[in-house]
Amino acid sequence: MRRYFALIQLWFIKALEYRAELVVWAILTLLNTVILLAIWISVFRGQTSVNGYQVGQIMQYFLLVTVINGVTASHFEGWRSQEVREGKIDHYLTKPISYPLQVLLADIGNRLFYLTLILPITFLVYYVFSLSFNLGTVAFTPLVIAQFIFLLGVGYLIEFSCAMIAVLLSFWFEGAEGLEHFKWITISLFSGFMIPLEFMPGWLRSAVDILPLKYMYAIPIQVIQQRVTLRITDFMYIFFFLAVIFFFQRWLWQKATAKYTSSG
């Protein structure tokens, strides 16, 4: 266990080395959140409620999107694929921890770092906006918290698995940049990241209802806002989907190791 913790910790330490990047990310997060909230305030001007949301609830929604994004959004496929292409993963492959697990631990280190950066900024924005708007209160019952944390884990595993699949495919393809954009656009459109499900046109909503991506943003926020609670069918669907992508990754990894050419 100590070796896993050491890997997570080193990626955290590495992230702390880039002080300028830290400031840029903090400003970006602040700017992004404030502008997003300002846009939605403008949309709600003159209206008390749109599609079942009051202005405070929609602001709460996007503040939660920022937090969830900080926890779950893995974006390593571009540079990791380049490493595969250039044969720079040799040292990972000779270590007594499997490569996918090293990638996972590294990403957890990165996620923890960004979460510590994003959380205080989000709370600051929440506090400032709550002075002028009723952002509502959230009833953090044990059931709600448990469901929310479970869904954060699910969201992370979906994001990570999709990124990892893109990296593994780069053992065959020349790059994963296209796959990274595909992942980002798909998740943005079908998860509730861009807009709440209630604002989507009927055909898009139908697609979202079928896909598991809604468990990444829309459903955890609805759980917090106590609009929904998870049913047994949700759990079954989630576990089935996670099992499918887990075994697909394992299968890809087995094929990829045989395919690796260790260029350079």
């Binding site: 913790f5 080193l10 330490i13 007594p96």
Partner: peptide, 15 residues
């Protein structure tokens, strides 16, 4: 971007 000592400590943990 890190001192070599950090890599040594990581290898210590990994191995």
């Amino acid at each position: 971007d890190l001192p070599a000592m950090e890599s040594f400590l990581l290898n210590k943990a990994i191995y």
